[in-house]
Design a protein around this nucleic acid. Structure first.
Length: 557
RNA sequence: UGACCCAUGGUGUAAUGGUAACACAUCUGAUUUUGGUUCAGACAUUCAAGGUUCGAGUCCUUGUGGGUCAACCA
């Protein structure tokens, strides 16, 4: 960690280092990642995870994983499991056991009773609409509830009855007695407890009153001895309330809430509600659909934990609203995959070619390095024969200038093998090219010494030896840079109809038959791909993680 | 018409009162048996006006622009 000294500190690190210099919190650093288990984690959470756990590591501290499970009707164990998996996969370890806000329900209740006794909380009998009206507006102060000055005894009794199930949902709430005239809306006697006769995924039917976020969160931080409670900007207005609740119970060290700007990525949506909508209404195939910005989606797409951590590091941490270009995420995964992914031959839109002067029935072994970027890389042998497949894009009848690939009469090298010339092409009734007849130059085999140069090098597979595979090409999920920014159009109107393209007739080099699920490859000249979980022994399925950078198609567009 | 927060190249982030920099993107060129990688280069930045100071992106004031807040959500 010493090496990080060269790098400048973000504003949260500066706060922590100042605290450390001042001996605050007994020189401890304890952060927490507090997801609500009401959906799958997305790349925005990854930023928060990397921040919180990263701080724990950097300052020799720890980070807790705590589920903020105070709203049983929205939460589910499926989400708990997925969140645990995603945090682990990103490569982080939390301190001790997993925590749950629901573990603290009894303590929270006792503190609420104490607050009632001190005249700091009261039971309100009014329905939510009325309470809402009395709250006033940002410009106009609120009005006090007629129940605000009940006796402590009455409050105690009513709160006890709330807990014991005497009331229906919505009949009573417990409110903090703060200040109905505060210019900060959060301070206008916020609700602390509401009645919910609902089954909780951990506490079952033990409770029918549940604490609200503002009350539960800060107290949970305090219970866990959190030093720095990092959250996103929209909680900035809540900080005085966070501190007010702490004032009621805290002795000694207390957590400090610090807000940072959440991640926004263009061409996608990041709200859990909207992501849930895409899943529920089948606009995508589940939370881990490779087009989703969820961590599980990125994982299935072929992203590596390293690339996501590097991304989080690169985008930085600050307080100003930001929209990161999706291309940066793609850069990060290319950068990592370039180093670790073996290169393989894969023809995704096959075009048959026959080498008319190559002997029938002969197979040669072509040796290729698996990854030229990796000094320790092994090589493998590929079969080469008279009948081959190349990419349809690699042949044009009437090519533009500076087209380095095949066209009638032109020459290219087949990577690792020979230089070939296209003599003839055949088309079907629609004019589509169906086959090329080529001749090879036997003197140009790779590694056979001095040979003449050609501009283009193509990837290929032997038609007699290749395997069939399905390849799924993904494009951005939305056509709009900011799909949820348009007030007149629902974000789903900007869904990209071409975000998934399935190619069912792809031809791959034989060694790919046994590739394990999740294995990452570079399909030479095409992009990075990984083996999808839908693969079967008969039909492997590959997901395109990202294309290779392509300055040719960029310049022609 | 309140409170709180924010403002640096196209994007994001630095510069901690002392030469405005790094990455991505874009564009050149070199290398290359991947139109990849690598290498070299180019482009382009302090919201405005006042003030403090020898010196301001940084501190102060005002303005402008943007964000957040009126769930028994988190």
């Amino acid at each position: 960690m010493e090496l990080q000294n060269e790098k400048s500190l973000n504003f949260i690190e500066q706060i922590i280092e100042t605290d450390l210099e001042n001996g605050k919190n007994g020189n401890r650093v304890l952060t927490r990642f507090p997801p609500e288990p009401n959906g799958y984690l997305h790349i925005g959470h990854a930023k928060s995870i990397c921040l919180n756990f990263g701080l724990g590591i950097k300052y020799n501290g720890q980070t807790n994983l705590r589920f903020d499970d105070t709203n049983p009707v929205k939460e589910d164990e499926e989400y708990v499991d997925s969140i645990i998996e995603d945090v682990k996969w990103l490569g982080f370890n939390w301190d001790g056991e997993i925590r749950y806000a629901s573990d603290y329900f009894e303590q929270l209740y006792q503190w609420a009773v104490q607050m009632i006794k001190e005249g700091k909380a009261y039971v309100d009998d009014q329905p939510s609409e009325l309470i809402s009206q009395q709250r006033g507006t940002p410009q106009k102060p609120g009005d006090e509830s007629p129940y605000r000055n009940r006796t402590i005894e009455e409050n105690l009794d009513l709160f006890e009855q709330m807990r014991s199930g005497k009331f229906q949902n919505g009949e009573r709430v417990l409110r903090a007695k703060v200040d109905m005239a505060s210019p900060n809306m959060q301070m206008r006697d916020p609700v602390m407890y509401r009645i919910m006769h609902a089954h909780h995924h951990r506490t079952g039917d033990q409770w029918c009153i549940y604490p609200m976020y503002d009350y539960a969160h800060g107290q949970s931080d305090y219970i866990e001895n959190i030093t720095h409670s990092i959250c996103t900007l929209e909680f900035e207005n809540h900080r005085p309330l966070y501190n007010w609740f702490l004032d009621q119970v805290a002795n000694g060290d207390r957590p400090q809430q610090i807000e940072f700007a959440r991640l926004n990525l263009n061409y996608t949506v990041m709200s859990k509600r909207k992501l849930l909508e895409l899943v529920k209404d089948n606009y995508v195939n589940g939370w881990d659909d490779p087009r989703m910005p969820t961590i599980s989606g990125l994982r299935r797409r072929g992203y590596t934990p390293e690339s996501i951590r590097n991304f989080a590091d690169r985008i930085g941490v600050a307080k100003r609203d930001n929209v990161i270009e999706f291309g940066l995420l793609e850069f990060m995964v290319r950068e990592h995959l370039n180093k670790i992914a073996d290169r393989v031959m894969a023809v995704i839109n096959p075009l048959k070619i026959t080498l008319t002067n190559y002997p029938d029935g002969v197979t040669e072994d072509i040796e290729l390095v698996n990854n030229p970027e990796d000094p320790n890389s092994q090589s493998r042998k590929l079969p080469f024969s008279k009948h081959l497949f190349i990419e349809q894009d690699d042949f044009m009848i009437d090519p533009p200038k500076k087209y380095f690939r095949l066209s009638p009469g032109s020459e290219v090298r087949l990577k690792g093998a020979y230089i070939i010339r296209c003599d003839e092409y055949r088309t079907d009734e629609n004019g589509k090219v169906t086959e090329l007849l080529c001749t090879y130059d036997p003197d140009t085999r790779s590694g056979a010494g001095e040979s003449r140069k050609v501009k283009g090098t193509l990837h290929w597979v032997s038609a007699d030896h290749c395997i069939d595979a399905e390849v799924r090409l993904y494009d951005r999920l939305f056509t709009h840079e900011a799909p949820d920014s348009d007030k007149d159009h629902d974000f789903k109107e900007f869904l990209n109809p071409n975000s998934l393209q399935v190619l069912a007739n792809c031809k791959l080099e034989p060694g790919l038959k046994e590739a394990a699920i999740g294995t990452k490859f570079q399909f030479q000249r095409i992009g990075y791909f990984c083996v999808d979980k839908d693969s079967t022994a008969e039909m492997p399925v590959f997901n395109r993680t990202v294309t290779l950078k392509d300055s040719w198609s960029n310049s022609t567009n």
